[in-house]
Amino acid sequence: MGKKLALTLKIWRQESNKAKGKFETYKLKDIDTDASFVEMLDVLNEELALAGKQPVAFETDCREGICGCCGAMVNGHAHGPQRETTLCQLHMRLFENNDTIIVEPFRAKAMPLIKDLIIDRSSLTRIIAKGGYVSVRTGSAPDANSILIRKENAEAAMDAAQCIGCGACAAACPNAAAMLYTAAKVSQLALLPQGHPEREKRVSEMLTQMDKEGFGNCSNSYECEIVCPKGISVTNIARLNKEYLRALLN
């Protein structure tokens, strides 16, 4: 067991997309420093439920940093102040006794609020649906080394494939752009031979969908790279830019 913390939480409460929201203040005692941020919210919700109040709505699933469900702005940082960490993997030992923690939902027009800290990220899914896959028959597993892939490309594709689609990049972007997300999804396929047959169509249609959803335009602030829980690099955005120009020229 870790140490115990007393905390003041200011959490954004909003009944629905149309309702008016506001910050509510809650006091918590005896929060274990070994608890994760979402476990701390569980404790709060239990207290609220016992007091006959509405618990705070927030989304989690795996709680091990791999599904991309969780996420909120914590003291102004998407997923909290620790680098390469999802909200569910953020631990309370990062905070001090008597800290005030402000929790606000991710905000972007293309990711509208549903309730409290829960947002609708189906816009990200619709971008994937436009080409974030390979539709050619790949057959059974090929013999080892029959398709040669440069080590650097394999590594870069794997790095891009780490994206869990949490939306933190768009949330932290001053322009609410989903550029790092789309870049990761385009990159992971553009770097591998399996992705090549549909290369131009993929980038063109995914980007059109991204624009249609109402995400902003990247202005190279690189805030996304800082908050990405998977450490996805903005070199993927440069690759996306290149792929798009390539699709125009071909």
């Binding site: 200011k10 954004w12 910050f23 702005m73 003291n75 102004g76 402000i102 606000e104 905000r107 972007a108 027009k109 293309a110 609020l113 322009n175 609410a176 752009a177 109402g214 995400f215 902003g216 335009n217």
Partner: peptide, 8 residues
């Protein structure tokens, strides 16, 4: 693209 701004 961010019609509702952050409050914090």
């Amino acid at each position: 693209a961010r019609s509702i701004r952050y409050k914090s």
